[in-house]
Design a protein around this nucleic acid. Structure first.
Lengths: 218, 218
DNA sequence: ACGCCGCCGTAACGTACGGTACGGTACGGT
DNA sequence: ACCGTACCGTACCGTACGTTACGGCGGCGT
């Protein structure tokens, strides 16, 4: 037997996608206490197929995380007519998107299992989530920051440091509190407000001002 | 049988503290895959004693987390002669302390198990860590912020919002990356540098300036 | 028609581990 | 000397679950 060849390729049968969606749903409901039997029952497939397709439990979890990651690919920003206004709206849209994803039940569930498995693992789920979470966010945002730097709207020495500051201003304690199980209501209005606040604070720190900006105080 | 009465009181035998330290060490080494047998062997005690003292596995984990939390109680700040200098140094000391704790192996291990158990649990470990982590930090920092507000050195409407911004500026993506298993070297020098940067950025956002402050760019 | 293949459902196996029971030992009180 | 208490070490039980094996069935090529 050569197990789990499908995972390495991007070739996923519709049937297999359905299975992964079922696993995802169970992951959200029950955390990583999901059993192979429960996945098979939920997806109406046999355990034999699960093992043939994904090798073992770890392979199934890995494939599930990657499957979700593949669905979340965001659209990049287009660097054309660029101004303080477009920079601001780009940052705001980015922040609100990120907060929305972050506070979603799927993201919370996935980060939970990834954190749980991050200690000692072979198919490190943590690395996968890391890659598709913070790192992907950085890759997506850095072109925008670089553009701001090149056009003189922003000023900083290290793009990575600037990104990480923006990350902190956006996420703050939201993610860790959600992961630790804090009941947290993040309404659309709150997300928009936080995105605007984080953007304004970021511009206050790294923007090149000609005029005094508006309220950065909460 | 009335199980685990000891947990409710603060009365912990020296022997029991030793056991909890052993459990803590195992938690750091192996994550929450630690077994009752392994704890008993490491602490050179019988499983029967573990169950008598802590009720069940969950009780042992809970007691372990609380035991560690009890050891971390920090000293509060004294509100006497207050100036921009003391505010700054207070914030910096606070930030560096927090970063040091946060990046320690014990904190990472404890947050890992708490996050893992946060989904569906009875003795919610997540709540305990939340209480002794971010919430304790907030309680410890807010008097300092309030003092800054009262003395006119700071300006904000909502203390909680100000705290959470400071939290974001200090922690950024450090904690989530560590939890997800990112190999991360946080040297003493880096911690001090980050603490100063976060403090300066916070003052730039919420401080009442008479003079232009120093470099907030990285 | 017929055999092959992929898949479902289910039963079975092996094992790891939470939890319990029990024998043995040290010790302090009487 | 005797008993109760506390504890260690270990063997044991029950169960949950990962993993494997097997019987049956519908579709598809020939």
């Amino acid at each position: 037997m050569q197990p789990a060849v499908e995972v390495n390729e991007n070739a996923l049968t519709e049937r297999q996608k359905d299975v992964l969606d079922a696993a995802l749903a169970l992951l959200v409901e029950a955390g990583d206490t999901l059993t192979m039997t429960s996945v098979a029952r939920r997806a109406s497939c046999s355990k034999e197929s699960l093992y043939k397709w994904f090798g073992d439990r770890d392979g199934l979890l890995t494939a599930t995380v990657q499957w979700q990651a593949a669905k979340v690919r965001g659209v990049p920003v287009d660097p054309e007519a660029f101004s303080l206004k477009s920079l601001t709206s780009g940052l705001e849209r980015f922040a609100s998107d990120w907060l929305r994803v972050l506070s979603g039940t799927i993201s919370v569930a996935l980060n939970r299992v990834a954190v749980g498995h991050a200690g000692s693992d072979k198919h490190d789920l943590g690395a996968i989530v890391l890659e598709n979470g913070p790192f992907a966010m950085a890759r997506r945002l850095k072109p925008l920051l670089q553009l701001g730097l090149d056009t003189g709207l922003l000023a900083f020495n290290d793009t990575d440091e600037a990104f990480r500051t923006f990350f902190g201003l956006v996420v703050r304690d939201v993610q860790i509190r959600l992961l630790l199980g804090d009941r947290f209501e993040l309404t659309e209005a709150a997300i928009d407000r936080d995105a605007r606040r984080a953007t304004q604070q970021f511009l206050a720190l790294y923007g090149v001002h000609k005029t005094a900006d508006m309220a950065t105080k909460s």
